[in-house]
């Protein structure tokens, strides 16, 4: 009879060029202790592990789930071993390979540290290229900068429960990435009636037209699974940066690119003519309720 320890899937968490953001985010998971109980953590840079880094890079083990955080750099070493060799070794016998974060998925911010040689595991921005191409069918990309801890816990629980995990063309789970960051934004009425926010951190206004919000073009669950359980960037009045997409990091954050006042990028898959016609119609009307402040602080109690 197998002991409980032997029955648990073995999880290995390795890092490329990283800021540790996805680890930092993950340890905020409210149910972290219960989740970790379900795995044997072979190695994680900060969580209690059954093996140490030197044992891992000796390449004598295998794992069931390989999680990689950070950009892939072919000359990077950890434990004096090229991570290139380490990840290929563990990829062979893993059932699942999870790219945690945009760097591991597409290259992200840390691709920029050596743009010619860094990439994600199987994507280099939006081109299919990377060290684990041979194991592409095992890859799950959880892009985000960082990912929400519940995105990872959701996928790990789906794996544990034996659910199939349908992926999109960028290998991201449709469970989390089929909706847009735009869905569930508390400013939707302002978006509808084209009432633009005139700055950041304001309760009123939509951030799309003047403040560079990428939410209508970005696949993410940020306004459905709230951050820290309470909020999101757009809800507090800072625009979405599109951090789950291959083009991240962008160099036009906070700015909406326009050509003769026409937004360069309109909401995903909406024909530009259709968008302009509807937006033009909405902009014509001035809805008093929507143009005023939500809370009148000056009113005496």
């Amino acid at each position: 009879m197998h002991s409980n320890q032997e029955a648990k899937p073995q999880l290995l968490w390795l890092q490329g060029v990283t800021c540790n953001g996805n680890t930092h985010s993950f340890i905020n998971l409210e149910t972290l202790p219960q989740l970790l109980e379900k795995f044997e953590i072979l190695y994680h840079p900060i969580l209690p592990s059954t093996k140490n880094l030197h044992e891992i890079v000796s390449l004598k083990n295998s794992c069931d789930i390989l999680i990689f955080e950070g950009a892939y750099d072919p000359v990077l070493k950890r434990g004096d071993t090229l991570i290139k060799d380490v990840i290929v070794h563990y990829a062979k016998e893993a059932d699942y390979i999870i790219a945690a974060g945009t760097c591991a998925s597409f290259g992200g911010i840390f691709k920029q540290s050596a743009p010619q040689r860094n990439s994600g595991l199987v994507f280099n921005e939006n081109i299919t290229q990377g060290p684990l191409m041979a194991y592409k069918e095992k890859i799950i990309n959880l892009s985000g900068c960082p990912i929400h801890p519940e995105w990872l816990s959701t996928i790990l629980n789906m794996i544990l429960s034996g659910y199939s995990i349908p992926l999109d063309s960028l290998l991201r789970p449709q469970e989390l990435y089929s909706s847009l960051a735009h869905h569930g934004c508390s400013r939707n009425e302002y978006f509808e009636w084209k009432v633009d926010a005139k700055g950041f951190g304001l309760k009123e206004g939509c951030l799309y037209y003047e403040q560079g919000c990428r939410a209508p073009m970005t696949h993410a669950s940020c306004n459905k699974i709230l951050w820290n359980g309470v909020s999101s960037k757009t809800r507090v009045g800072t625009p979405c940066f599109g951090c789950t997409e291959p083009e991240f990091p962008r160099n036009d954050n906070y700015v909406t690119k326009t050509n003769m006042s026409i937004p360069q990028d309109v909401p995903l898959d909406i024909p530009k003519r259709a968008y302009l016609s509807v937006a033009g119609m909405a902009k014509t009307f001035h809805i008093k309720r929507l143009e005023g402040k939500l809370i009148d602080y000056k009113r005496d109690n």
Partner: peptide, 21 residues
């Protein structure tokens, strides 16, 4: 109101400007 009744034409001019820029 505004340009809503000439929208089919104005939208097309917007497309022209957007692409040209």
């Amino acid at each position: 109101k505004g340009m809503i009744c000439v929208s089919p034409f104005v939208t097309e001019m917007m497309i022209f400007f957007d692409e040209s820029v």
